Computed example of a mutant assay.
Amino acid sequence: MTSLRVYDMASNITRRITRAVRFKMNSGIYTALSIASFVVCSTGIGFSQTQHYRYADPDQYFLPSPVRSVSTVPSNGDVNPYGVAFISRSFLSGAGPLRSGDILVSNFNNHNNLQGTGTTIVRIPASGSAPSVFFQGTAPLGLSTGLATLQYGLVLVCNLPTLDGTANTAKAGSLLVINNRGQLIQTITSEQINGPWDMTVIDRGDRASAFFANAIDGTVSRIDFAVSEKGLTKLGHYTIASGFQHQPDPAALFDAPTGLVYDANHDTLYVASTLDNAIFAVPDAVKRNSSDGPGFVIYDDPTHLHGALAMAEAPNGHLLVTNNDVINADPNQPSEIVEFTKDGNFVKEIPVDPNLGGSFGLAVQVKDNGTATLAAVDDNTATITIWTLED
């Protein structure tokens, strides 16, 4: 028998390995695992479906079949799934359809594949039943990667609309506030919302802060809100980081700052900047009311980064970032999710699609029973793939 070193996470949730057997084959040493729960180990995240699989290098996993792979195309034909968000246990579902563990996906393109014209959010039920349309707005809309939920039963989605699918007609956009029944109740605009490409939210119950990555001017902003079941009331708005490279791009609409992850323990906002092809850290993210530039680079890796895009935090504290495959593209590393530590050490790559340009939005949810789930969209196939994680 062999064992994997298990870290004690802040949540103090016990993870277990049910079996690990080391054996030797002609091609080298392999490890066979049968894992029924989320395991935390030094090699980074892996994937499980309570089945056997093998890997030759402890930092390079061969993935088992995903738990689910589901189409994100709604009845109106919207494509290019971008944003991904889980419904948590604390979400007030009320009379609406959303339940804990459901996944929401926002669509950026319409049925003609015009960028910045998608109007729908699709619900992927945790129960395994068929996807359905949770929200359908009225054009002009372009629902981007910025998608989040609040405990009060609200869904927030960023809107970066275009008239013809090109950056020439892109508008500053807005933040849409949708209730738990899929009804639009507010449209929030601000000078701090300027092409909202992605968003992350700190949910404190009756208070919330939303961070926006703005594609049109290459800034990151924060808006503080009071929250109730009736909606949001703006308390303050600030530009907290600036100077990220940004430009129009016919293949991606914009190359600009995108993925955002907030680290509450250190009041640090991590920013994935596509055109800079690097990950930045912005300190004092909640306290600061002005910009000192883009922050400082924590991860600069042209070997594995090919246009850093959407970003999420894994339960082991590592960061997961997708590649847009427009910047520094490598056909040998298409549509990858890259895992790395917050001090800038590469851990591994996780394939999403065998072709370039597939990986975009992703999200991670840790459940009370210690299991964790990763959901990642594939732009090429207009699907979302869902795995159970072992770490």
Rank of each mutant, 00 (worst) to 15 (best):
I298T: 04
I337L: 13
I279V: 15
S273Y: 04
G307I: 07
P331T: 10
V282L: 12
A278V: 12
D343M: 08
R288F: 00
D300I: 04
A308V: 15
P315W: 00
P283M: 10
L275E: 12
N324E: 11
A329S: 14
E336W: 10
P351V: 14
L356Q: 14
I337P: 02
G295Q: 00
A285L: 12
N277T: 01
N323F: 05
I337V: 15
I327C: 07
P331Y: 04
D353F: 15
A278Y: 00
G295E: 03
T303N: 11
L356D: 04
D300N: 11
G295D: 03
N328V: 00
L275S: 12
L320Q: 05
L356H: 09
H318S: 15
T341Y: 10
I279G: 09
P315Q: 01
A308I: 14
F340I: 05
N355H: 11
A281I: 13
P334H: 00
A308E: 09
S335A: 15
N324V: 07
V326S: 09
D276N: 05
Q333C: 08
A281E: 12
T341M: 08
V347G: 04
F296N: 08
D325V: 08
V297Y: 05
G317R: 13
P294M: 01
V282T: 14
E336N: 09
F340E: 04
V347W: 01
N328Q: 01
V286T: 15
S335V: 07
V321F: 00
V326K: 14
S291A: 10
L320K: 03
N289T: 13
L320N: 08
G344Y: 06
S273C: 06
S335F: 06
N323T: 06
T303V: 13
S290V: 05
A312L: 02
G344L: 10
F346K: 06
A272E: 07
D353E: 11
E336I: 12
H318Q: 13
S273G: 09
A312K: 00
D301A: 01
D353R: 10
D300F: 10
V352A: 07
P351M: 14
N332E: 12
D325T: 04
L320G: 07
P331K: 06
V282M: 13
G307Y: 02
A285M: 08
V352L: 07
L309P: 00
A285P: 02
A314D: 08
G307K: 01
D276P: 02
N345S: 10
Y299W: 02
G293E: 02
D330Y: 06
G317D: 04
L309N: 13
D300V: 03
Y299A: 02
D325P: 12
T322F: 06
I350R: 00
N277L: 03
I298L: 08
A278S: 15
K342N: 08
